[in-house]
Amino acid sequence: MALPRTQAAAILISVAGIAVSIYLTVLHYAGVVPACPASGAINCEAVLSSRYAVLGTTGIPTSALGIAWFAVSAALWTRPPGRMHLAWSAAGLVAVLYLVFVEIVVVGAICLWCTAAHALVVALVVLSLSPSGRGA
């Protein structure tokens, strides 16, 4: 049976989020900077080399959390939408707002690849709040 359009879209968005997060995680461990401008306000290198690009002192890149979050999201959206979808999206949105705060206020630069992942989280929040996403 084909999934409803909202669920299918949410799963696609989650898979795209996993892909972006994997890309950033692989580059982190390879010690390579992603293709992105490196001066001015758009500067992936500045963001990804900042101390906020890893979880505390663990050395685990923040993008690894992104892989986990999008994977759970993809799994959730294989089921009919409900409160769990909304709660998971809200948690993602809070994390995104914190990371955007760090980018703009603390580091003073925007990472385009990170912004792509953030936009995908916001898209999932919008879907979970839409009438079809709320199961209405």
């Binding site: 707002l97 206020v105 916001v122 839409s130």
Partner: peptide, 27 residues
């Protein structure tokens, strides 16, 4: 039905604008 998603997008945009203003003051 569009109000809640639109409110979230508008809220995010407002917060980003606020972050930019804070950054400008802190530079």
């Amino acid at each position: 039905g569009w109000v809640a998603p639109a409110a979230v997008v508008a809220g995010v945009a407002l917060l980003v604008a606020a972050f930019l203003v804070i950054r400008w003051y802190m530079t």
